[in-house]
């Protein structure tokens, strides 16, 4: 029984939250890695793109709620999500046309694009603030739990409860579908292969008749959609606060680099590696240890690091991976 309790506690406090968080990071990292692979720079504006997409989705959600539309047990935000994705895609396409294209056509050094993305970050940050302000917004509605603690206890008779929030389950399901669709697109369709070809060898892609501008447009649309989905899922799971989306840039970059920049598969693996480590290292293991070793009474919480240091975890993992495997877990384009 104690072992079962320990497993339930592990699921409840570590595995479920970390899986949801990992899926969110993976979606964010996929966007970063695609832009790195195809446009050849790290997009510092990605966090703010996520925030912008989420802000639009929230506004649309409020509109739907005001109109009395709802999805029953599912959050209304799911209906508003396509609006957010479309608006974000339009914004990044406009940004590309106004900012990045100029340097791309001139074959400017990629570092200029990084600098430009800092400028874009400021503008998008300001736009998001204009749209929705800097306060925390909660926009999840519908059923809060798929399984709640009490009914789980009644169902199983275990002492330890298990809660599975709707948003967590949704995150994992949506992330799975999106990732599957993306891989199908990249590996099975002509357009997707053209994107990979462009990432591999720009000149040869051009000489093969692939339109570079079309590849770039597709990349931005996909990256914007991924960013919006990641942002909305993160916001549903926790809450929306513009600054948090800026801060999440570090774990997202860490995930993309740990996996190997430019490798979509790596981005997913990296997202989960970072998420599991973050949660496992900042979780107080006292309760689980109590079930496993009933006689043992440690005086601490058995927490390796306080939750406020979760960013330190992404950083340490990043450093360790880079020291031993400079190209990331899956061989990326860097180096």
């Amino acid at each position: 029984m104690d072992i079962l309790n320990a497993i339930v506690a592990l699921l409840n406090f570590v595995i479920i939250p970390a899986t949801a968080y990992g899926a969110q990071l993976a979606l964010g990292a996929l966007g970063v890695t695609l832009i790195y692979g195809i446009l050849r720079f790290s997009n510092f504006a990605h966090g703010d793109t996520m925030a912008f997409g989420t802000a639009i989705t929230i506004l649309a959600t409020w509109g739907l709620q005001a109109a009395g539309v709802s999805l029953g047990p599912l959050p209304t935000a799911l209906l508003a999500l396509p609006v957010g994705m479309a608006a974000t895609a339009l914004l990044v396409l406009a940004t590309d046309r106004a900012v990045y294209r100029f340097y791309r056509v001139k074959k400017a050094a990629p570092i200029i694009l990084v600098m430009a993305s800092v400028g874009v970050m400021f503008v998008m940050n300001g736009l998001t603030r204009l749209l929705i302000g800097v306060d925390e917004e909660r926009f999840a509605d519908g059923a809060r739990f798929v399984i709640d603690v009490r009914s789980f206890r009644e169902m199983t008779g275990l002492q330890e409860g298990l809660a599975l929030r709707t948003t967590q389950l949704l995150t994992v399901v949506i992330a799975f579908v999106v990732v599957w669709a993306l891989f199908w697109f990249l590996n099975r369709t002509k357009s997707g292969k053209a994107m990979r070809a462009y990432s591999d060898n720009e000149d040869l892609a051009l000489l093969s008749g692939i339109d570079p501008e079309r590849v770039v447009r597709m990349t931005w649309i996909i990256a914007a959609s991924l960013a919006t989905i990641a942002g909305v899922l993160y916001g549903l799971d926790k809450s929306f606060k513009a600054f948090n989306y800026f801060q999440i840039l570090l774990p997202i970059f860490a995930a993309a680099i740990v996996g190997g920049l430019g490798s979509p598969l790596g981005a997913i693996a990296g997202g989960f590696v970072v998420a599991y480590s973050e949660v496992a290292i900042t979780y107080p293991w006292l309760k689980i240890a109590g079930y496993l070793f009933p006689g043992w009474q440690p005086d601490g919480l058995l927490q390796l690091l306080g939750t406020e240091y979760k960013f330190a975890v992404s950083f340490v993992i990043l450093i360790v991976v880079l020291l031993f495997k400079p190209t990331g877990l899956f061989r990326g384009k860097s180096v």
Binding site: V99, A116, G119, V120, F122, V123, M124, N125, G126, R129
Partner: peptide
């Protein structure tokens, strides 16, 4: 001012 700074940089 965020938008302004971004535009100045760009």
């Amino acid at each position: 001012r965020f938008i302004a700074m971004g535009l100045v940089l760009l």
